[in-house]
Amino acid sequence: MLRVSDLAKQYGKANRPLFSALDFAVGSGEIVALVGESGVGKSTLLNCIAGLDTADRGSVAIGPQALDIVALDETARAALRARSIGFVFQAFHVLPTLTVAQNIGVPLLLCGVPAGEHAPRTQALLERVGLAGFAARWPASLSGGELQRVAIARALVHRPALLLADEPTGNLDPRTADEVLALLLERVREQQTSALVVTHSQHVAQSCDRILTLTPNGLLESGCARQ
């Protein structure tokens, strides 16, 4: 689960507030869409939640132990990300010098999962994202949809408590985007992972359980989109 409390971030030399006093939670197995205009601070909020950027105030509790990532030092934040957070990016960010199986195995290595478990877990996820037989392929030989499937498998292979997705279908054509989105939501719900999806797409937002709209005045909740 994810709980964000009183989170604030300023920017620029004048320390102008980007957002302040944000409070929200994402429960286990819940998928929340985060929408808002460009420049309102969606990506910065995502970075603060992931510990890639530092918030000026507030706390971000992640996972069953509710560890506050804001209070941790850089190394501990990295360790918490490795253990508890999965990421899906718009630009895929698949390592070009590693095979598909090696790419998916990276979070397992960072978590310290015993080597014997890597192959079965990677193989099982490859099958579930529709890439069985792709283990030894190099990223350069894959299409955009396939690359994003690899990214989804990599984001979930270590069974994180939280999945953060930044425009996960932004680089895909509508048909592939639909397939990838469906796959992502299905796997997240299956693993009972909390998910926060930053998107500009109404279609993606409507597919989530709830929609949060970030505005210069704070967060607005739009209720359960799917319902």
Binding site: L52, E74, A78, L80, R81, A82, V106, P107, C111, R154
Partner: peptide
């Protein structure tokens, strides 16, 4: 740099 940044995001510590 993007590869290392990705690994950092995935949890590879600065050290």
């Amino acid at each position: 740099s993007t590869q290392f940044a990705l690994l950092g995001v995935l949890g590879l510590s600065p050290r």
